[in-house]
């Protein structure tokens, strides 16, 4: 299995405050990688660096390299919009656009120049099927997406991200705002999606990391403390701090 994303000596500052310290990590393709750690440890910040969403925040400065498919994403020849198409993102709070379900899914493809109605119809159906929500919404594609339940909205957001055919899906605590049933649906979906996509998920829920991820990275105070096979990390952590965290002694 080859590495999709390789990060070398990456540091990130918010103004004067250093939020990430010398991160080195390689993320293999077609697998689920979980980022765990207490609030404010930098895991979400790191996730948002991978598709350069941090560019939008004023005062953020990054050093080091993030290689996506072997190419540095900060290179001046990289088209950041193309990068974000390939490295999709699902947010913590479901954030469908205030428009119809169909238009939500078609938004991305339309942005990238697809106008053909039949082709769009096809993409919408495929994406909704892949996100396991087609059966629930197929009869109301023209209805406003804000009328869906929270769990459905989140799967819609996943479908919307899939519609632009990304290679990587970044998920920022995608289930933290959802009920247990919706959560398990998203988890099942993630397990299925990893056959075709590289998934990187920030989670507060350690059971979730154990249940679905292949690799886990533990962050603490801006440092990557330990990274490795999920089973190994949770059963025989090498670092004392990892052990303290996963056994619930802090965090």
């Amino acid at each position: 299995m080859s590495n999709m994303i390789t990060v070398k000596n990456m540091c990130l500052w918010y103004g004067e405050h250093q939020a990430l310290k010398n991160i080195n990590v390689s993320i293999p393709e077609k697998s689920i990688t979980a980022f765990i750690g207490p609030s404010g440890c930098g895991k979400s910040t790191f996730l948002k660096s991978l598709n350069r969403m941090n560019d939008l925040i004023q005062g953020v400065r990054i050093t080091g390299d993030i290689l996506y498919n072997g190419k540095n994403i900060f290179d001046s020849s990289v088209d950041v919009n193309e990068l974000r198409r390939e490295v999709g993102m699902v947010f913590q709070k479901p954030n469908p656009f205030p428009m119809s379900i169909y238009d939500n899914i078609a938004y991305g493809p339309r942005t990238h120049g697809i106008k053909n109605k039949a082709k769009l119809d096809d993409i919408v159906e495929c994406s909704l099927r892949d996100a396991a929500i087609w059966e629930e919404v197929k009869d109301r594609l023209k209805k406003n997406a804000l009328g869906l339940s929270g769990g459905q909205q989140q799967r819609l957001c996943i479908a919307r991200a899939l519609a632009v055919k990304p290679a990587v899906l970044l998920m920022d605590e995608p289930t933290s705002a959802l009920d247990p049933i919706s959560t398990s649906k998203i988890e099942e979906l993630s397990m299925k999606l990893k056959e075709n996509y590289t998934i990187i998920m920030v989670t507060h829920n350690m059971q979730q990391a154990v249940r679905i991820s292949d690799q886990t990275a533990f962050f603490l105070l801006g440092e990557l403390i330990e990274y490795g096979n999920t089973e190994t990390l949770f059963s025989t952590p090498k670092d004392k701090r990892t052990e303290d965290y996963i056994t619930g002694r802090f965090g």
């Binding site: 969403m53 919009n81 993102m89 947010f91 954030n95 991305g108 991200a161």
Partner: peptide, 14 residues
């Protein structure tokens, strides 16, 4: 809401 705009940018829209 900023979330709408972030969602659009994350899809690769300018």
């Amino acid at each position: 809401p900023e979330e709408y705009e972030n969602a659009s940018l994350a899809l690769g829209a300018t």
